[in-house]
Each structure stands twice: as C-alpha cells, then as structure tokens.
Computed example of a mutant assay.
Amino acid sequence: MNDRPLTLMAVHAHPDDEATGTGGVLAQYAAEGIRTVLVTCTDGGCGDGPGGVKPGDPGHDPAAVALIRRQELKASCEILNVSHLETLDYADSGMMGWPTNDAPESFWQTPVEVGAARLAELLHRYQPDVVVTYDENGFYGHPDHIQTHRITMAALAMTTLTPKVYWTTAPHSMMRRFEQAIREFGTDEPASDATPTAGAAETVDDTATAEDTATVEIGLPDEEITTWVDTTAFAGQKLDALAAHASQGDNIFFLRMGKERFTDLMGVETFLRVRDTTGAATPENDLFAGLR
C-alpha cells in the first residue's frame, strides 16, 4: 500500500515568484492536506537593496540582497503553509540584456544538465504527483524563468516519474484586465521579476525596446487554457505572501491595490497542462484531477 502523500512541486525562479503565480494553489492544496514543495532556483540578488537601491547603482550589494530575500522567502512559505522549501541558490541573472546575464556564476550561464541533475534529485526525493513551472518563454521572457523551464523539463526527462506537468499562464481576457488595472493605479514604472503581468501593457523591463517587447507574447487565448483553479478563498494569504517580500515592494504592482481588488484580479490561477497520464477531461478546475 502506498502511503506517500499527494504532492505538488512548484519550481520557480526567484523569491516572490511563488506567491505571484502559484500562491493560491500552494495555500489551497496545503489546506487540503496535500504536501507542497517549493523549489526556488536563484538567490534574488538582482532585486532591490535596502532603501530601494537598484541593481548596478552604488551601494547595491547582491549578497546582502540575497540574504534579505531568503528570509522573506521563508516568511512567504510560512504564510502559504508550504511543506518544504528547497533553494538551489544560483546567482540571479537579472533582466534580459543586463550585464549580470553574462556572469559565469549566474543561473542563465549554468549548463542546463547541471541544474537539471540537481532538480532531478529533488524529484526523486519528493516524487511529486504534480509539477508546476513556466513555459518555454518563462511566461514573459525573463532569462531565469526561461532557464527554470529548461532545467525542469530536462530534470523530468532524467527520471521515470510521470507527474502531471503544468505551465503557469494567463488568459488574454485576464491580461486585458491587468492592463486596465495598471492604468487605473497610475503606474508607469517598468516591470521587474516580481511583476510579470506588466509586460502586456507597456514594457517588460527598462532596457527593452519596442521591437523587443513586440515579440514577447504573454498568456494564451482563453479557450486554450486547460486548467482554471478558483483560489479566491486563499487570496488573502496570497496577498500576505507577496507583502512578505517587503524589500521588493516598489516592484510588486499588486501591493498597490486593496485585498478586494486583488482578489478580483488574482483569485483564479490558470495553467496549461502539458503532461498527463490520468486522462482527466479539460478544461479542469483541479491540478489533481484524475489523481484523487
């Protein structure tokens, strides 16, 4: 008899990504007694430093930023009741085109097979029934998100495990609502790794050109979304988890709105199912459909 608990593994790039894209499902499934495992691939060292100092500016210390963000990540996991946190601690690569992309120790420069082998060890250890990560474009073109996708899919190929596999996404109808919210809350600030949705409205980052952003496609047509999980009952936890990443508050657009509006915008989390052995019909409203 197999007494191993049902397990969800979410593989993310930076501290705070766990809350933005999957905070609802992590909290909801934890409340249902499902084991939740978060793997965070980078140290977040390209985030804002104390006082809002930006990467590359005088006084920005990536090591100090990483230490702060590790503590914030732990706090977020406590709020979401994540069962197990695993950190790979690769150096944050920064936004696409930043000089940090080329640092030898950056995640972007890490050979895929090296990162995948480490993640494959965690897959063997936890034997997840469901794995969630990003699509080939990392949802919005961030190098660490793209690399996270690559090592996750490569790690799965290194094992004989057959979990359901999902990529985070957003329906185009939701992206239009995000654009409206961005206009409503009056922000012209560029997106950071904590604000993946802002790319649909203006630019993906402050180094991107119009030509760059025109090629970045975010989300999918509504009819192509396979999985819609209503996590509105856990939106408060999700917002609190985002707020735990206080050092990045300038970059987290969602913290500028109240709980009611946040729940309206972020209460449903959507995914594209890319691997399945259960035969569960789509569209589905449960990542564990066909498993229980």
Results as ranks from 00 to 15, higher is better:
207 T>P: 06
289 A>Y: 11
160 T>H: 07
44 G>D: 01
204 V>L: 14
125 R>P: 00
73 L>S: 00
257 M>E: 09
244 A>E: 01
289 A>S: 15
230 D>F: 05
182 I>F: 14
230 D>S: 13
26 L>D: 04
238 K>A: 05
251 N>S: 12
125 R>D: 06
24 G>S: 09
232 T>L: 08
269 E>L: 08
110 T>D: 01
215 T>L: 12
21 G>E: 07
43 D>K: 02
201 A>R: 06
7 T>A: 05
54 K>W: 10
265 L>R: 05
25 V>G: 02
38 L>M: 12
280 A>C: 11
227 T>F: 02
89 D>A: 13
81 N>K: 15
177 R>L: 07
238 K>T: 08
48 D>A: 15
153 M>V: 14
16 D>F: 12
87 T>V: 14
238 K>R: 12
226 T>H: 09
254 F>L: 14
194 A>W: 05
197 T>E: 11
292 R>W: 12
71 Q>W: 00
2 N>T: 15
79 I>F: 03
148 T>G: 01
229 V>M: 02
34 I>D: 05
61 D>W: 04
23 G>E: 04
60 H>D: 04
231 T>C: 12
10 A>P: 01
46 C>G: 11
284 E>F: 10
130 V>E: 05
86 E>L: 00
40 T>Q: 00
104 P>M: 11
10 A>C: 15
85 L>R: 01
239 L>T: 02
86 E>F: 00
119 L>M: 04
201 A>K: 09
254 F>M: 14
113 E>Q: 11
191 A>W: 06
77 C>H: 00
21 G>Q: 11
10 A>S: 12
81 N>S: 14
4 R>T: 14
166 Y>S: 04
79 I>K: 02
236 G>Q: 08
98 W>T: 12
90 Y>T: 00
187 T>Q: 06
149 H>F: 15
45 G>L: 07
104 P>L: 08
216 V>H: 11
133 T>S: 15
276 D>K: 04
265 L>S: 09
127 Q>C: 14
268 V>F: 09
281 A>P: 05
146 I>W: 00
164 K>R: 14
181 A>K: 03
166 Y>Q: 04
144 D>L: 02
200 A>N: 05
194 A>N: 13
135 D>C: 12
284 E>C: 15
58 P>D: 13
130 V>P: 04
51 G>W: 10
81 N>G: 12
102 D>H: 11
124 H>N: 13
93 S>A: 15
288 F>K: 03
193 D>M: 11
105 E>R: 12
17 D>G: 04
47 G>Q: 03
218 I>Y: 02
3 D>G: 09
28 Q>H: 09
59 G>L: 10
232 T>M: 10
93 S>T: 10
32 E>V: 08
170 A>P: 02
90 Y>V: 00
191 A>Q: 13
56 G>P: 02
187 T>W: 03
52 G>E: 06
138 G>P: 00
217 E>M: 14
165 V>F: 07
60 H>Y: 04
12 H>L: 03
120 A>G: 01
215 T>Y: 11
290 G>F: 01
65 V>K: 00
258 G>Q: 07
271 F>C: 02
111 P>G: 03
110 T>V: 06
10 A>N: 04
